[in-house]
């Protein structure tokens, strides 16, 4: 009886871990468009990216402001391969990255070791 309980508890714990980390709802945030026609969004960098999914329009300049709120070396670099960006993010500072998405699609941004990740969804 105890054995069955242990087994069930184990299965429940594994399920909980996987649900918590993999089934996380990722809310997409659309970049706000300024009067000048530029899209802008601020992304908080602390143990991950908040928001982690950015929606943007194709062909319009997009300003990503990475607001790094920690010193952990895990997040010290931001990489957006699609736009050839690898930048160091100073701790507790805002770093501006300007890009212009030329194509529609989903493009990843990650930390230097691709452990932390987010996505830019470019709509046509």
């Amino acid at each position: 009886m105890l054995e069955i309980l242990i087994l069930l508890a184990g299965i429940a714990a594994v399920a909980l871990v996987n649900w918590y980390f993999f089934m996380a709802p990722r809310t997409a945030v659309a970049a706000a468009t300024s009067a000048a026609g530029r899209q802008e969004v601020t992304i908080r960098v602390e143990g991950g990216y908040t928001p982690s999914v950015i929606r943007a329009k194709r062909g319009k300049p997009l300003r990503l402001i990475f607001d790094r709120r920690e010193k952990s070396p895990c997040s010290d670099e931001i990489v957006i391969s699609e736009f050839g960006v690898r930048r160091f993010l100073k701790p507790f500072e805002k770093t501006v990255i300007d890009v212009t998405p030329a194509q529609a699609g989903a493009f990843e941004f990650t930390c230097g070791m691709s452990m932390l990740r987010g996505q830019i969804q470019v709509e046509g």
């Binding site: 918590y20 980390f21 996380a24 602390e46 143990g47 991950g48 990216y49 908040t50 920690e70 952990s72 895990c74 452990m115 932390l116």
Partner: peptide, 19 residues
């Protein structure tokens, strides 16, 4: 301490890493 605080921040963002 750095392992615990960083693990906690990551946990709040539903991510997990070496910490």
């Amino acid at each position: 301490r750095q392992f615990y605080t960083r693990a906690w921040t990551a946990f709040r963002h539903r991510t997990a890493d070496m910490n």
